[in-house]
Design a protein around this nucleic acid. Structure first.
Lengths: 337, 337
DNA sequence: CTGAAAGCGCTAACAG
DNA sequence: CTGTTAGCGCTTTCAG
């Protein structure tokens, strides 16, 4: 009754061939005559038979599984990226093994357990995760092909954006609209990294100001932690400086949502008296009319998945892909009144 | 140089014991003297050795992996639930294999590939996924212990909320505040299910009205699709009926966010002229001050994970857990002006 | 094109 | 408590 017990031998016997032929047929490998192959496949279908993944894996050394390590999936970036990754992996017949790092402790655990995690997978995708710095290059450390998305990693392929350029463009959008006092709500620095996303975006902000001959005013810089709540708070601070900004660049859409709310609370009409631009193109941005810089995270995830697969199969793919971040101008930015 | 090639035999040889003792020691199984065990473990550590998962799995028939099938992880409920599931699985030393169903086509693929997916896992968690209806009970169909979260499933353990009761409570909150014309923005029905979440919540809404002796007015029911955009649209419709509601229950927080925005656009002050209550306690709800019904999705996920583990290990756990959904009154609901 | 046979690395009786 | 040994189910040379 236990259908699970039927093995490749049963199929071979039923088809009157050797297990080798069954194995070849079922894996689309050459070396089996067309009619033989058809017969084998038909019989396997009839028996509802499929190769036992663990056994195949043990015998072949391949796992047909890709590992994905990422911070908290409850968060926008990683969960969207995961979606993209999954869609191409599923199509390629690969399984997806997850390693989630919500806390710093999880991160340490990952570094500790990375080797054993890697034994279960043919390749690794690191989402928004910095993992090097050990001197070892990533591929060497993990002993598997690695592709990073959202970060550059030594010795690994990567899919990322040009954070500095993209935020420069965001601020230039405000400048083009005639704004001259432009504030910024910053994202948190992450200790693991030498030059973090936040730092790069800060430079882009300054590039734009400098490029337009505007002065850089430290009172127009408010630190956020990425959350809506911090966006509310940061924007409130910016609105209460002696000479408040007429345009604000938020390093994430979530903080921009908070910023918008703060403006509303303060009775400052957007975009009439204040323009706000975010960064991400979060799912909610369109509905809220938020102007932003679009990070096509799911596409980045898909590309990452295609890249690991190529690496696994030995095809050398592009190794450092920089994704474009188009401006999406919606209703929260307008010419300075 | 390839460290991967070191096997249990090498450890056994180095420790001067049999492979059986090594296996037992490394898996904390009884039958090894304390000093022997310590020596073996020390040597394994020194060699950086770990059991080969596929080989163990093949030999033992266990995979130490739990499968999770869920709709789009970009979405709030499933990605939060996944977080909870992962945290307990990680602690128990189980891997997490993902099956994502973004589209109806994916769903069909899942039903088709379910058996083979199940061969890779010891147990299955279905998040927000209806999978039965084939006459087969879930456990029998998947041939593995199954626990459903967010849905009841025939022949499977489940972690879910009482949708009808919870939405009744939400509407009663509005009633308690003195509201008499209470609208509802509904979530989409899902074809797969006989009595969907949306339908149950609708009944709860009517229960509350009826319980308070209020009339049920169909013009106060607006259909949404779960998105912010649909919330905006639905609320606009509700605000333009001849006698608009003074309180609105939204079947999801996301739609409530839209509803709030529509109210703002229409110049209707919340909560002064209009109370709005959502459902979920989405991450953004607190920051936006939205009153809502809290679904502790991560805890539900953790419980689901503990339940599969118990099932896998043969410990019979509770089979139908109903999770409490407390009211979280914040700033969008107030006594009728 | 097809088959035989030697493993892949570990687990689980079974013996001692 | 410890060791022996026969597999787990498949892949992959190597012959034919």
């Amino acid at each position: 009754m236990d259908e699970g017990r039927i093995t490749i031998d049963d199929i071979a016997a039923a088809a009157g061939v050797s297990v080798a032929s069954v194995s070849r047929s079922l894996r689309d490998l050459p070396g089996v005559g067309p009619q033989t192959r058809k017969r084998i496949i038909d019989i396997a279908d009839e028996f509802g038979y499929e190769l036992h993944p663990q056994a195949s894996s043990l015998a072949s050394g391949r796992t047909s599984t890709v590992g994905v390590a990422a911070p908290l999936f409850g968060t926008w970036f990683p969960s969207r990226a995961l979606g993209g990754v999954h869609s191409v992996l599923a199509e390629a017949g690969y399984d997806l093994l997850i390693f989630m790092m919500s806390t710093p402790a999880d991160r340490r655990r990952f570094l500790r357990e990375a080797r054993s995690f890697c034994r279960r997978v043919d390749g690794l995708i690191l989402i928004d995760t910095f993992a090097g710095a050990d001197g070892d290059s990533a591929d060497a450390f993990f002993n598997r092909p690695v592709v990073a998305v959202g970060e550059r990693l030594d010795g690994a392929a990567s899919i990322a954006i040009d954070n500095r350029l993209a935020s420069r463009r965001a601020v230039e959008h405000l400048i083009d609209l005639g704004h001259e006092r432009i504030g910024v709500i910053t994202a948190p620095e992450r200790a693991e990294m030498s030059m973090s996303t936040s730092g790069l975006r800060r430079l882009g902000y300054e590039d734009a100001l400098r490029g337009a001959g505007l002065t850089i005013d430290p009172t127009l810089v408010a630190a956020g932690d990425g959350s809506i709540a911090s966006g509310i708070e940061a924007m409130s601070r910016l609105l209460s400086v002696p000479e408040p900004p007429t345009g604000v660049f938020c390093m994430s859409d979530e903080m921009a949502f908070g910023a918008l709310r703060a403006a509303q609370n303060a009775g400052v009409p957007v975009p009439d008296a204040l323009s706000v631009i975010g960064f991400d193109d979060h799912d909610f941005a369109a509905a809220l009319g938020l102007s932003t810089m679009r990070q096509s995270v799911d596409e980045m995830g898909m590309t990452a998945a295609r890249t690991v697969l190529a690496l696994i199969e030995g095809t050398e793919p592009a190794s450092e892909i920089t994704w474009d971040v188009p401006l999406v101008a919606r209703q929260t930015t307008a010419a300075r009144g």
